[in-house]
């Protein structure tokens, strides 16, 4: 860890002021990713602004019947909140699929969004990495890339976003509330994270002077027909090879509305509106699921070790859609895949 300065923000405005005045400063809340990266010398902030004392730990109903989740609500509290369990079980399930109970107790809602990739080379400062050191090259292309992205990649970066929670948030069309010097704004989840393009060092569209204050969930939670299916190399405490969040609104066997988001396959939680549209208005049949999967994966491309992810994602999408349609969501404790 480098010799950073430690400060505490007294309120949101103070936090914004502090971050705006020092481009090399970082907010710290749960610490589960940032402290890890600091020990690896990947993150070397000049200053840590401790935001854990800000009053952002509430979960409240919004006027439109949705839910507003404070940025500092710990992941475990969020997963087990009665409103989440009753109305947004997809989100709860995704959170419980990630990390470990200890980490979920620490990690904050806002911090979860800002997790950095788990790419081997991003973490190894002896190797080139465009995300860590722009212009140095991407070691994963032509290197060890079993965990890497198959969608939305660029010649500069094929890293994946590691979050499970965000995959569910993408499917639920959450919004991210952020406050900066120019005030508060609401960012659609799909617009929050970025694809690597030629600026892989940027993970999100959060501005340098902004702090995430809350996540807003719309009223529709797909509590009846949903699933979060995570496929990984061991049965718990591992990042996803591929994960699939599904929310369906089914009436009389016909899908009225469909949400389908993938984790472990791209630099951001991956949604494909076209695939969802193909499901909407159609019966919940395997044939339609196959068509949706094909649509999602049409542009998928492997880099060698991760070629299998394309087929794994296809099969995973079929299974997850079937689980959701049947109303038999994946349990995160029972490891048998339903």
């Amino acid at each position: 860890m480098n010799n950073f300065e430690y400060t505490r923000a007294s309120d949101v405005a103070d936090a914004v002021r502090r971050i705006a005045s020092d481009p090399a400063a970082k907010f710290v809340a749960g610490g589960t990713n940032l402290i890890d990266l600091m020990k690896e010398n990947v993150a070397r902030p000049s200053r840590l602004i401790d935001i854990t004392h800000l009053p952002l730990d509430q979960i409240d109903e919004t006027q439109d019947g949705g839910l507003r989740i404070g940025a500092l609500v710990p992941n475990s509290d969020l997963a087990q909140h009665p409103q989440i369990e009753a109305r947004y079980p997809l989100l709860g399930s995704a959170i419980l699929a990630g990390a470990s109970p200890q980490l979920r107790n620490m990690a904050s809602t806002g911090g979860n969004l800002l997790q950095r990739t788990r790419c081997l080379y991003f973490y190894d400062t002896t190797t080139p990495c465009n995300k860590r050191e722009p212009g140095s090259g991407c070691s994963a292309i032509g290197g060890i890339n079993r965990m890497h992205a198959i969608l939305g990649t660029s010649e500069h970066c094929i890293a994946t976003h590691p979050s499970d929670m965000c995959v569910a948030l993408a499917a639920l069309e959450a919004r991210v509330l952020a406050t900066g010097r120019s005030g508060e704004r609401s960012i659609a989840f799909a617009e929050f994270h970025r694809l690597p393009g030629d600026t892989p060092q940027l993970d999100s569209n959060l501005r340098a002077d902004e702090i995430i204050t809350a996540i807003e969930l719309p009223p529709e939670g797909f509590a009846k027909n949903y699933t979060y299916l995570k496929i990984r190399d061991r049965l718990s405490y591992a990042f996803a090879l591929v994960s699939i969040a599904v929310g369906l609104d089914i009436e009389g066997g016909t899908i009225k509305e469909a949400r389908l988001a993938l984790g472990g396959v791209a630099h951001k939680p991956w949604r494909n509106r076209e695939a969802e549209a193909r499901l909407e208005g159609a019966p919940a049949t395997r044939e339609n699921f196959v068509r949706a999967a094909e649509t999602v994966l049409r542009e998928a491309r492997g880099f060698g070790h991760n070629d299998f992810k394309i087929e794994l994602a296809r099969r995973g999408i079929l299974r997850a859609l079937a689980q959701a349609a049947r109303g038999t969501p994946q349990s995160q404790a029972d490891k048998r895949i339903r």
Partner: peptide, 24 residues
């Protein structure tokens, strides 16, 4: 796993080098 270009073991922590956990 070795990255032959660097002659280096690149799975060098307990998140990348998996050992069984309780659920396994």
């Amino acid at each position: 796993v070795t990255d032959q270009r660097f002659g280096r073991f690149v799975t060098r922590n307990l998140a990348d080098y998996h050992v069984p956990v309780n659920a396994d």
